[in-house]
Design a protein around this nucleic acid. Sequence first.
DNA 1: GTGAAAGCGCTAACAG
DNA 2: CTGTTAGCGCTTTCAC
Lengths: 335, 335
Amino acid sequence: MVTLAEVAKHAGVSASTVSYVLSGKRSISASTRERVERSIDDLGYHPNAGARALASSKTNIIALMMPLRTDMYVPVMMEIAIAVATAARAHGYDILLLTGEEGPAAVRRIEGSALADAMILMDVELDDERLPLVRGAERPVALIGLPGDPTDLTCVDLDFTATGALCVEYLANLGHRELAVIGEAPGVYERHTGFAERTLSGVRSRARELGVRALHRPCLGGYPAMAGTLARIFDERPGTTGFIVQNEAAVEPLLNLLRQQGRAVPEDVSVVAICPDQVATQASVRLTSVAIPAQEMGRRTVERIVAKLEGRGRPEVQLLEPELTVRASSGPAPI
Amino acid sequence: MVTLAEVAKHAGVSASTVSYVLSGKRSISASTRERVERSIDDLGYHPNAGARALASSKTNIIALMMPLRTDMYVPVMMEIAIAVATAARAHGYDILLLTGEEGPAAVRRIEGSALADAMILMDVELDDERLPLVRGAERPVALIGLPGDPTDLTCVDLDFTATGALCVEYLANLGHRELAVIGEAPGVYERHTGFAERTLSGVRSRARELGVRALHRPCLGGYPAMAGTLARIFDERPGTTGFIVQNEAAVEPLLNLLRQQGRAVPEDVSVVAICPDQVATQASVRLTSVAIPAQEMGRRTVERIVAKLEGRGRPEVQLLEPELTVRASSGPAPI
DNA sequence: GTGAAAGCGCTAACAG
DNA sequence: CTGTTAGCGCTTTCAC
């Protein structure tokens, strides 16, 4: 293993000079710099991460905690994780992936062992058990998701309230007066990130403002569950013509069931989904949808964290504006 | 930040004693051990990862490289990654997540900087550009996937050849004589892991043995592509009654299209999929399938790596036996 | 069964 | 602009 000292000797300079060439923290004459850089190449030198971390108290690692609840739609999580990793690398950071189980203990472990310079927490619950630790943390932390009380925290999330409102508004403008929201699994509403509740409250308040009716039903996803949910919806509100779906596992079942029942999309009923673009475009009917901007969320979060690491930027909740893309699943309400 | 020295002072022992209590590398009297452990708790001590890495040349980190080709089915990758992370933690290791871009350079970076003790490479191509580096690596490496030449490498993968054979055998036993394989996107066959080719060769050789015909068609996935592919299949082989699908994005389109064409599953045609169980059970018809054992692959890979790190175990290709689960999409061939 | 002390490879004052 | 030097916190001989 090549060490800095060896590079120094090879280049005929002192260790510190090599170090400074690497960090750029003081000016070096062109000739020395060149000599050192040549030696680095010749010897194939790479700074030792452990030594560097010890001496500088900087690891250049960001920990990414993603608890993996079974009812979360994994691909979105993954897309965010990938975006985070990519963005982090662009800023010179690597990602340490922490999953499930460990929970709050992981926060303590990372903090205590100085394994990472900062942390990003995904899939944040309304009253997340990691939050107390986060608030007392010495290192920067950012959340992807919005807890019940985001005071003093840095959070990035899609503005789900606006998303719900946007969907209602869009459908109402098309003349739909009876809407149904097909939501996440019931469990999600009880203990989760609150994104589901926020969507719902956006839906309800805009529905009230616009004078349309909106019925909400959680749904486990899959065919049997969707069939039951759909039956109950039409039972209760036979005039329903607009659907807002926030549940990837319910999308395809819904479309198939509507078809089976002879309700044409978008002629008889319109469907607007809140889901990743990939799901929207791969569905059996190309879905009008509000995308979950996973890439953007990952990128922004890393930017916030890096800003904090560099001493810039203070806690801030950053909600991304929803964008609705019209595709083939929506149209004017039938007369 | 609490240091080992502080713990030592608090417990009234020397630093080395604390270190040995932690590592268990020499016997400690019960009383001392207790005292030290109390101090550790009282002070909330966590060993500094950097210092430990520097002194011991062990990071307790395993790097996981997953290139992210856009045509790979992400959820499977993710499931493996999660399984890897979980298994690694159980062995006392954390996972450093490396994605895309960097390619071979990442291997060099990890090796050179001693950021991790070992590496796991996912989504291995037939002639992966990372392999030369891997062969010369000082640290243990394991591959998830099977390259063209696995000599001297540690690999874990599903036995796709056996998988292809198994699917054919199953359908042939049900009396199907004309089979069609709906494969991955064309691009996958050109440059990828070879899992697609291996499946195909398994299909072909068993088909020959059993005297059944098997037509193969790559498919981009999605409705339009699947519609075209399906039309061409029935055009060329109108008597096709058995489908083997190895493409998650083609599953639902296939089922819907068959339905639209009035071909009942499983009465008229049988469908066997090679996909994660979740896809098989969530499809509009519960699919008879061979599962991609993501969990198992992750677990096994970590076991191999840990074995290597502990000096046990040498290079070895480990192919997991496919298991076919019968569900609702397959039945006897129509008469 | 326990201590003392020498590094591990790097960074960052402190001196010129 | 460059060199000298003192650690960073831990592991691990060596010595008792």
